[in-house]
């Protein structure tokens, strides 16, 4: 954990608020005066992790910048469910252009603000995983490489959910989507080398890279606030479960995000200048099966023709993350 852990306060670090803490120490989301940058009335599915993640991130950024913030949004669920004419759910200056150009648009905004002497206004670019790891990847890499003063946030729900749940470059191996159906001998999505945009971002040696989940709000807010202390290109990759696309209960969104971290499937860490500086360690390690089972996209691994071999490969991937990032709890490492 990269921020002060909360001890001896009944509920600890993971809870949203805590009446026993000083108001200054409580999360942004615990405040009645939070921005609600993404407000009610949006058309996200029940239990949408992305809607939650976006509000978490933007509210924290609004606080960090004292409301001097502009958001650029790539095409995707987040854009569609928040801005169907005639209603917008955003409560900050917000621009949507295209699917693949969010980072470049954000660069343009940042350049304009700098050129006109208004660079006290900060810029956030945001997209889903499709707009980040796939179609927007070129513009993202360009933004990183130029070190433009943008915090780009990827809300990763591991697929093209807006178009009806197809595979993206962030879809994990073994997961079924509408373009990686379990037909014939195919066990869902293929096992590849993966595409970790956080690691790719680090390879650009930008000032700050972090991953987070919607299950660890304080960690997430801390990272947003920290990101805002840097100038230059910054990247935040937020894991946001998708009840619809994953075939999970709407009430399980945060639980699944928690399990993704506790299994080692999704490493939560921070990096500065290309070097990992902090990792969020696993608190109560569980096997990947605990994470996979509640999701219908993995149902074929446990059905009448179970695929323990595939589950074992997924476990091996989690174990590699654990070893690579040193995710085991303090004392177990």
């Amino acid at each position: 954990m990269t921020f002060q852990e909360i001890k001896l306060y009944q509920t600890g670090t993971f809870v949203v608020g805590n009446r026993l803490l000083d108001p200054q120490q409580r999360s942004v989301q615990a405040r009645t005066g939070r921005s609600n940058s993404l407000t009610s009335g949006h058309r996200a599915c029940q239990g949408c992790g992305e809607a939650l993640g976006a509000r978490y991130v933007l509210d924290a950024a609004m606080r960090a910048t004292d409301g001097r913030l502009v958001a650029v949004n790539s095409t995707g669920c987040l854009e569609v469910f928040s801005t169907p004419y005639p209603e917008s759910s955003w409560q900050l200056p917000w621009l949507h252009s295209l699917f693949g150009n969010g980072p470049a648009v954000a660069s343009g905004v940042a350049a304009a603000l700098r050129a006109s002497g208004r660079d006290d206004i900060r810029v956030i670019g945001q997209a889903g995983d499709g707009g980040t790891v796939d179609i927007g990847f070129g513009t993202l890499s360009g933004m990183f490489e130029r070190n433009d003063d943008v915090l780009f946030v990827c809300y990763d729900n591991e697929g093209y959910m807006n178009t009806g749940v197809q595979r993206s470059g962030a879809t994990p191996p073994g997961a079924a989507t509408n373009t990686t159906k379990v037909l014939g001998h195919h066990p869902g999505n293929a096992f590849g080398q993966g595409k970790s945009v956080p690691l790719i971002a680090m390879a650009h040696e930008i000032p700050y890279v972090a991953t987070a989940t919607v299950a660890e709000l304080r960690d997430l807010e801390h990272k947003v606030e920290k990101a805002m202390t840097f100038r230059g290109a910054r990247y935040l990759h937020v894991f946001v479960p998708c009840p619809l696309g994953w075939g999970a209960a709407s009430a399980d969104t945060i639980k699944l995000a928690r399990l993704a971290k506790e299994t080692g499937i999704f490493p939560v860490f921070e990096a500065e200048g290309g070097q990992v500086t902090e990792v969020s360690r696993i608190r109560r390690q569980v096997p990947v099966e605990d994470y996979l089972r509640p999701q219908r996209r993995y149902a074929h691994l446990f059905g009448d023709n179970p695929r323990p071999d595939v589950v074992a490969r997924i476990q091996a991937g989690a174990d590699r993350n654990i070893a690579r990032f040193g995710l085991l709890p303090e004392g177990d490492a």
Binding site: Q10, T11, V15, V16, G17, N18, R19, R26, S27, Q29, A30, T32, N36, L38, T39, S40, H42, A44, G47, C48, G49, A51, L52, R55, L217, T253, I254
Partner: peptide
């Protein structure tokens, strides 16, 4: 309830009023 704000925080629809 012991006032942990979780409900207020985790609602994707801001449908919890604190």
């Amino acid at each position: 309830c012991f006032g942990c704000d979780n409900c207020y925080g985790v609602c994707p629809d801001n449908a919890v009023i604190k």
